[in-house]
């Protein structure tokens, strides 16, 4: 922990317990402001999750996971198609985005000459792309699918394409940082022993950067799994009553089903949607936990 952080913590503790010597009005106001900010941020989140969980509580059952959505029998509506659809989408998103993202990052970090104007242009664009609203990637995916000759983009491939485009900049940026953090000595040592640049990158730099790359990728995927807007644009249907069977299969996603059901008039369907929100949160938390686990397991210190 940095010196500043340690000092700040001590001062805060002293202010709170009344032991500090500089117990002025200003410092007390500042302390209260900090607590308020913390309280506000955490409370809003807790209140949101709690109210959703309470609303969805009657529907935490196996049917929520195994049944298809239902308007005929809203009390047994489930999200099987959405959950499976989201998993398929994530799989193909990862297949498309991860190799491309890592390759682009390695090129930019290890091979590209940062002084060349076009490389700097690419860099600036990458930063900007990471901030583009997700719905724009949906439009882009529709255009790409049309160019590739698909009449209908509402399939696994179309949805995954939109999500892959969405998280590509995030993956590139985090991978570059992970590659940059690998100490120069490791590359120098490898080169000095006679390895080629390719061998050095493939066998030394990349393996050392795996924890950073994996964390960035999983965080990117956990952003993608919660997206509905680009999928709506791509034309995924809200109501699908069959399991996805492959890349060309029609599909729906969990956030899309939640969106569709929250605007239905029946209380049972909105309850089911609340329960599905908790399912989605659990999926995202699971992905994030996986990211933390991978980071801790493979982290090396030099």
């Amino acid at each position: 922990m940095s010196i500043a952080a340690t000092t700040a913590r001590e001062v805060t503790a002293q202010l709170a317990t009344g032991k500090s010597k500089d117990r002025t009005v200003g410092s007390l106001v500042f302390l209260c402001a900090l607590w308020f900010s913390l309280f506000f941020g955490v409370m809003v989140l807790v209140a949101l999750i709690a109210s959703t969980a309470i609303k969805g509580a009657p529907r935490f059952d196996a049917e929520l996971l195994t049944n298809y959505t239902s308007i005929v029998r809203p009390e047994t509506a489930g999200f099987r198609a959405g959950i499976l659809g989201s998993l398929w989408l994530m799989l193909f998103t990862a297949i498309m985005a991860v190799p491309l993202g890592i390759a682009a990052a390695v090129y930019l970090e290890e091979f590209a000459d940062p002084n060349k104007p076009w490389n700097r242009l690419i860099e600036v664009n990458l930063q900007n792309l990471a901030a583009v609203p997700s719905i724009v990637y949906g439009l882009l995916a529709v255009a790409v699918m049309a160019l590739l000759g698909f009449d209908d983009a509402g399939i696994v491939l179309g949805g995954a394409l939109a999500l892959a485009l969405l998280i590509l900049p995030v993956i590139i940026i985090t991978t570059r940082e992970a590659v940059r953090a690998v100490p120069r000595e490791i590359r120098d040592g490898s080169l000095a022993l006679g390895a080629t640049v390719w061998q050095t990158t493939w066998r030394q730099t990349l393996p050392s950067a795996v924890p950073g790359i994996a964390t960035g990728t999983i965080l990117g995927l956990s952003r993608a799994i919660g997206e509905a807007a680009p999928l709506v644009v791509v034309g995924l249907a809200g109501s699908v009553l069959f399991d996805p069977e492959g890349m060309m299969s029609k599909v729906t996603a969990l956030p899309m089903q939640i969106y569709s059901l929250t605007s239905q008039s029946r209380e049972e369907l909105r309850e089911a949607a609340s329960a599905a929100i908790i399912v989605l949160l659990v999926m995202i938390l699971g992905l994030n936990a996986l990211a933390i686990y991978i980071r801790n397991k493979f982290q090396r210190s030099w």
């Binding site: 298809y68 239902s70 308007i71 005929v72 509402g154 034309g235 995924l236 249907a237 809200g238 109501s239 699908v240 009553l241 069959f242 029609k250 729906t252 569709s260």
Partner: peptide, 18 residues
Amino acid sequence: QELLNEQNPEVQVTVGEA
């Protein structure tokens, strides 16, 4: 879509609300 699929799950219908 639901009622039809109860009889014949082979007809794969997708319904959107654009």
